Computed example of a mutant assay.
Amino acid sequence: MSSESFDLAEPELTAEDLLVLDDPHFEPDSVAVVTGAASGIGQATAIALAANGLTVVGADIDEEGLEKTVDLAGAVDASGDVRPVPTDLTDDGDVEAMIEAAAEAGELRYVANIAGMQHIASLPEFPTEKYDLLLDVMLRAPFLVAKFAMPHIRATDDGVGAIGNMSSVHGHYATQDKPAYITAKHGLAGLTRSIAAEGEGTLRGFSVSVGYVLTPLMVNQIEDTAAERGISEREVVEDVMLGQARTKEMMTPAEVANLFVFGFSRHGKHLNGGDLLWDGGYTTTYE
Rank of each mutant, 00 (worst) to 15 (best):
R109M: 03
K185I: 02
N220K: 14
A73W: 01
D81T: 12
I153P: 06
P179A: 00
L66E: 10
G171Q: 08
T87Y: 07
A189S: 11
Q176H: 14
T175L: 03
G273R: 13
D92C: 07
P179Y: 01
T69P: 05
E198K: 11
D29C: 03
M250R: 13
M250Y: 15
M250C: 12
T156K: 02
L72K: 10
S3G: 14
F148Y: 11
D275G: 01
G116M: 00
D275L: 00
G161I: 02
G106S: 05
A184I: 08
K178H: 15
A37N: 07
S168C: 01
D88M: 01
F260T: 04
F264M: 01
A227C: 04
P179W: 06
D7S: 09
L259Q: 12
V208T: 13
G199I: 05
P86H: 11
V219M: 10
T283N: 08
E198T: 12
T128G: 10
V219G: 14
G205C: 01
Q221D: 15
A227P: 09
V56C: 02
D224G: 08
T183E: 06
P28L: 00
V240R: 08
P127W: 01
A197V: 00
R234I: 09
L18W: 04
L203V: 01
V160T: 10
T247E: 13
G58D: 10
S5G: 11
H119C: 04
A97Y: 13
